[in-house]
Design a binder for these strands. Structure first.
Length: 578
RNA sequence: CGGGGCGUGGCUCAGCCUGGCUAGAGCGCCUGGUUCGGGACCAGGAGGUCGGUGGUUCGAAUCCACUCGCCCCGACCA
């Protein structure tokens, strides 16, 4: 295509509203324009790049036998009421009414509609298994859209759904998706992690997320630096690092001491000269309407997802100050487990085996020293704490690292939630009705582009992986008004096209600097510069990412780009199992 | 929803506190010319009524009230 005829509105200045790199560059490079908070128009370059991503996704989905469909984004309330999610989704679901006052919503995912199709069509075990998918626009009324395309209210998702007769079938469908996702992200040139994910309120049995490390991300992942095992922080388990100071030995009795005005763990640490890891942290939570005392090591944080699972109430809340005083006779800041009988006590595993620690005395401005779990109070032991950097991998013992990441894909064993609630039944071989088991699997299309930019950019712009760049190569005659350069550029351009490359000829009457800056900005992986060396039959091939430049013969130029493209990414060998 | 910031030509911003003549700059855009290997130079030109509404005042981009929108932090996030 000829650049002079295209609308590629690059900007010299970074728009003030953009903070993260991918957002700034998508705007500057003329990929996107904002329409409203979390709502973006995708201009020519973005559309090309997203189309390439979708094409890769389609190829790999077809490779596992998935069938593409296209479902309505506009859904009647009924199907969401049947699954129970009309109420559960709350404010995040865009809702509207039709002219007769009937309730509708804009779908944020499609378990309901897919299950509706399945229950209308599937009758026999002979029709299973099925994998159905679509690439379609989703709507979510995010409380706070942010960071350009990273968190938006309207976005494109590849979502697939599997229907199987039994768990073994679901396992196979899940496995297929796992491998297909690895191939997709490999082909897109991304460096990513596959992490164990929290099953959430969906009650599924297994879930993995595909994550790209980035400071712009919002999810935290615990990664073992030894064996590479990774899990979302919501789910991660590890051995706590040992306490900074060993416990006092012996069978000592709890002993109150005065701690005037010291309420926080940090204040007590400073006051006693003992580290936070020598203290117990007491949290009072209300789950299912009943109070629970949770004990953690002083330097540890509660993992809310874990407590939600243990308590059976993911909607638990912290106790109010007045409740705490009523139940403990002291305010938060002086609470402890000794003598508490009015509520269950849950203790995190990191307290097991510890002796003679410091805890609140349930009397304002007093703490106890020499408190030992199992002797001075009894508690139910659970894994309740958030894994922290420096913990040890429970598999191999190596240190754990915490990384900030962007989620690009998520696979999920749903189980029977939708097939059960929406009445999907088929006859098995014995002629008995059974409920098929389902899985659901998502990929955020724009997030692949965004993550790629976050991973690979510099001061001058994006350096996109060739598989997802809007063009493979840009041909830049340094001076378009030089007939020799112009003709050579056009010749090379045609040769690139016949090599099957997506080529862009920068035929604009601009100074070379302008063209170089624009080419760098929009992230085309290779650039062929036709300049003065043309006299000796040479042109320059520039690699956008490495900035490496070398001279190639004019006649070889197109073929050389083709060779480079064939050599590039499809990066690593993917892990073969889960 | 709580906290903070910001709305002035396409982009980046100045002016506002201490109201006052035709609202400024750089970039971009248009015309002509000179240029042509990392966002050129000269000359000429187009383009904004200062987010909106109401008020105070002889007079409002500037002060006051309300309101809309955008960004950031937090809450939230199958």
């Amino acid at each position: 295509m000829l650049w002079s005829r295209l609308h590629i509105p690059t900007l010299r200045d970074t728009p003030a509203e953009a903070e993260v790199a991918s957002h700034q560059l998508l705007l500057r490079a003329g990929y996107i324009r904002q329409l409203s908070a979390g709502i973006y128009s995708y201009l020519f370059l973005a559309q090309r790049s997203l189309a390439r991503i979708q094409s890769i996704v389609r190829q790999e989905m077809h490779a596992i036998g998935a069938q593409e469909m296209y479902l309505p984004a506009l859904n009647p309330a009924e199907v969401w009421q049947e699954s129970g999610r009309w109420d559960i989704m709350g404010e995040n679901l865009f809702r509207l009414k039709d002219r007769f006052g009937r309730d509708f919503c804009l779908a944020m995912t499609h378990e309901e509609v897919m299950t509706t199709i399945a229950r209308g069509e599937l009758r026999s075990y002979k029709q299973l298994p099925q994998i159905w998918y679509q690439i379609q626009t989703k709507f979510r009324d995010e409380a706070r859209p942010k960071s350009g395309l990273l968190r938006v209210r309207q976005f494109i998702m590849k979502d697939s759904y599997s229907f199987d007769m039994d768990r073994a079938g679901l396992d196979a469908a899940y496995q297929k998706h796992y491998q297909a996702y690895c191939r997709i992200f490999d082909r897109c040139g991304l460096d990513y992690l596959v992490v164990e994910a929290h099953s959430g309120a969906m009650g599924g049995s297994q879930s993995h997320e595909f994550m790209v490390a980035s400071e712009a991300g919002e999810d935290f992942v615990a990664v073992c630096q030894g064996c590479g095992h990774a899990a979302n922080l919501e789910k991660a388990m590890a051995e706590a690092a040992p306490p900074a100071v060993p416990d006092p030995p012996g069978d000592l009795a709890p002993e109150p001491f005065h701690t005037p005005g010291r309420k926080t763990i940090a204040e007590i640490a400073e006051f006693t000269g003992l580290p936070e890891s020598s203290q117990m942290k007491s949290l009072v939570l209300v789950a299912d309407g009943k109070p629970v005392l949770v004990m953690l090591r002083g330097d540890h944080q509660l993992n809310e997802a874990k407590f939600g699972a243990v308590s059976g109430d993911p909607e638990f809340r912290p106790a109010r100050p007045d409740e705490i005083v009523e139940w403990f006779g002291a305010a938060a800041g002086s609470l402890g487990p000794v003598g508490v009988t009015s509520m269950p006590i849950l203790a995190d595993g990191a307290l097991a085996g510890r002796r003679n620690m410091i805890a609140g005395a349930n009397r304002d401005d007093y703490h106890l020293r020499h408190v030992t779990l199992g002797e001075d109070f009894q508690a139910e032991l659970h894994d309740l704490r958030q894994v922290a950097a420096g913990d040890r991998c429970s598999g191999c013992g190596a240190p754990i690292e915490i990384r900030k990441t962007v989620e690009i894909g998520h696979i999920f064993k749903l189980g029977y939630k939708y097939s059960e609630s929406m009445g999907l039944r088929v006859l098995n071989q014995e002629g008995r009705e059974i409920t098929p088991i389902m899985g659901s699997y998502g990929i955020g299309i724009e997030r692949i582009l965004t993550a790629a930019i976050e991973l690979s950019h510099d001061q001058d712009g994006m350096a996109l992986p060739s598989a997802i760049a809007p063009f493979d190569v840009v041909i830049t005659p340094a001076n378009i008004s030089d007939p020799a350069q112009r003709e050579a550029a056009e010749r090379i351009y045609r040769e690139c096209l016949s090599e099957g490359l997506d080529a862009l000829l920068d035929d604009r009457d601009e100074r070379p600097g302008v063209k170089f800056k624009d080419a760098d900005l929009i992230g085309v992986p290779w650039r062929l510069v036709i300049g003065k060396k043309l006299a000796s039959g040479m042109v320059e091939l520039v690699d956008r990412k490495t900035r490496r430049t070398r001279d190639v013969a004019e006649r070889e130029a197109a073929r050389e780009v083709r060779t480079q493209k064939d050599l590039s990414p499809s990066r690593k060998v993917t892990p073969g199992r889960i």
